[in-house]
Design a protein around this nucleic acid. Structure first.
Lengths: 184, 184
DNA sequence: CGTTTGGCAATACGACTGCACTGTATCTGC
DNA sequence: GCAGATACAGTGCAGTCGTATTGCCAAACG
């Protein structure tokens, strides 16, 4: 066997370059050569690790999703054991929302991929899991969960567009949580 | 003056072809030649009416927005004079949501443009108007309006992705309206 | 040692891109 | 009828695209 190289490490390195590109210029600017240049490697190397562009896109999409999931998990972890449901939900949602500049980049990438998968069935995300969890925890059940999930997504969109400020978004989120948990 | 041709008519004809393309294959599939073929005209003609591709994109974006606004206006018009606020809001929101296959296409295009404008400042949409109106009508004021707008957007996204059915979305919307208007 | 094999670079290729340019037909105003 | 403006169609060009192919280099194995 020849030289040993961590395959997944290289792949994520390339995927990171792709997301950086997508965050600033959109997925339309993503090409093998651009990604290679952004990653500081040769175009041939990108091809070595991804036989086709589609494969590269799919992998990058996976990475983005994993990262987001990890962010949520990390936010949840800081809450300690058995936190009150409301705090838990709030932490999970604020972890996903693009509230600062850094996460705004992530959000832009997520949005780009959202439009990307919209015309490419077979890459769709699984929301069922999160939805079920919301439904379990919320007094309002499935309908409340649907609404909260949609609210989250919508807040993200408008935050990205700059139509809502972080304060407005959080205020709206808290107001909704107030209602759902019937605080008065 | 030479031959008389309705300029805007041709331009919207081309823009329609563009949106048709965007609905099925995404904005990445939009090129001068593709659009021309879809519209059944020569590539030269497209260039005649749009000096650059950016100009064509911007115009198509405008058309999509106008169409959406018209849909809302039409939905409102069917309600007659001075309808109850709750019904009005419901009509406006359901007019925008991609609830059937036809409006799903529109939704996909809107999503594509959303991602498109996310990396192209200067093409951003104006939501302030709708937000203000919501805030006026809703008992909850600005915060309630923010939440409702976000809910609307999020429902649209998940409807497009197929994660929510039309029934689920409407149920969530009605539940939210119930809460906002304090029906008990 | 040589052979094999994976890591990687470079090049070539055909298709496609946006755009500039040219040519031609058609119509209006003088 | 002629000059000029508009409405196209067609072609050419420089650049980029994704992908296949080739070749060199280093490391592991027999």
């Amino acid at each position: 066997m020849p030289r040993k190289v961590d395959h997944t490490e290289r792949r994520t390195l390339i995927a990171d370059a792709l997301t950086r590109l997508a965050a600033t210029q959109g997925l339309e600017a993503v090409s093998l050569r651009h990604v290679a240049a952004e990653a500081g490697v040769s175009a041939g190397m990108v091809q070595h690790y991804f036989r086709t562009k589609d494969e590269m896109m799919a992998f990058a999409l996976e990475v983005v999703r994993d990262r987001n999931q990890a962010r949520v998990a990390a936010a949840v972890a800081t809450l300690g054991d058995d936190p009150p449901p409301r705090l838990l939900l709030r932490a999970m949602i604020t972890a996903v929302l693009p509230l600062d500049d850094a996460s705004r980049d992530v959000g832009r990438v997520a949005l780009a991929f959202l439009a990307y998968t919209a015309v490419r069935p077979g890459l769709r995300a699984e929301t069922a899991q999160l939805l079920e969890y919301f439904a379990e925890v919320l007094p309002g059940g499935a309908t409340a969960a649907t609404g909260l999930l949609a609210l989250m997504e919508g807040l993200g969109i408008y935050l990205l567009g700059g139509q809502f400020t972080a304060e407005q978004a959080i205020e709206a989120l808290d107001a909704q949580l107030d209602v759902l948990f019937s605080v008065r």
